[in-house]
């Protein structure tokens, strides 16, 4: 017998492996909990801190929705819809990114974020504060690169002025 309290060998579970379970949960009318991985949705969602519930995307997505989709390359991505095209496809972009990804078709969508746990607080994507943040962050998308540069410069300055007080992310 293997010691039950001893964890199984650590292995990363890919979203490809999880997709059937996600669909099983949707078929049972449930949402699927996913930890946030990667930094592409900072500052909204942080890896190893935040998590989301993924629900079935009933009907077309709207601007501001945060879906999980599968790229043609097979890669799974959680990026925000920043515009909906007339042909029904979506243009997506991570909150920590400036490069748009156009041409995401509805059949590539696995599900969309229906519940968020951020810094230990839980809320629906319909929460007013969250919606205002999303509205603002999508609005400033064309200026995001400049904002990132300002943030980077401010961080550098703070680290110089108060060494040891701020984390160095570089």
């Amino acid at each position: 017998m293997t010691e039950a309290g001893q964890s199984a060998p650590r292995r990363l579970v890919s979203l490809k492996e999880l997709e059937p379970l996600i669909r099983e949960a949707f078929a049972a009318g449930k949402a699927f909990g996913l930890p946030v991985t990667g930094t592409s949705n900072l500052p909204t969602l942080s890896p190893n801190r935040d998590s989301i519930l993924l629900g079935r995307a009933d009907g077309p997505l709207k601007k501001g929705d945060l879906p999980l989709y599968r790229r043609s390359s097979g890669q799974y991505v959680l990026h925000r819809v920043v515009s909906v095209q007339k042909d029904g496809s979506y243009t997506c972009c991570g909150d920590n990114q400036c490069t748009l990804e156009p041409g995401i078709r509805p059949e590539q969508i696995i599900g969309k974020t229906v519940w968020i746990r951020r810094k230990g607080r839980e809320f629906s994507p319909r929460h007013l504060g969250y919606r205002l943040w999303v509205w603002f962050w999508v609005l400033v998308l064309p200026r995001r690169e400049a904002l990132f540069r300002v943030r980077h410069a401010a961080g550098r300055l703070c680290r110089k002025l108060f060494p040891g007080k701020f984390k160095d992310h570089t």
């Binding site: 293997t2 010691e3 199984a8 949960a25 930890p35 519930l53």
Partner: peptide, 20 residues
């Protein structure tokens, strides 16, 4: 894996061995 709000505070996926 987690499939509900009640379990969302568990931020991850649990790997279990056979006994677990």
């Amino acid at each position: 894996v987690s499939v509900g709000k009640r379990t969302l505070d568990f931020n991850g996926i649990i790997n279990l061995n056979d006994t677990g």
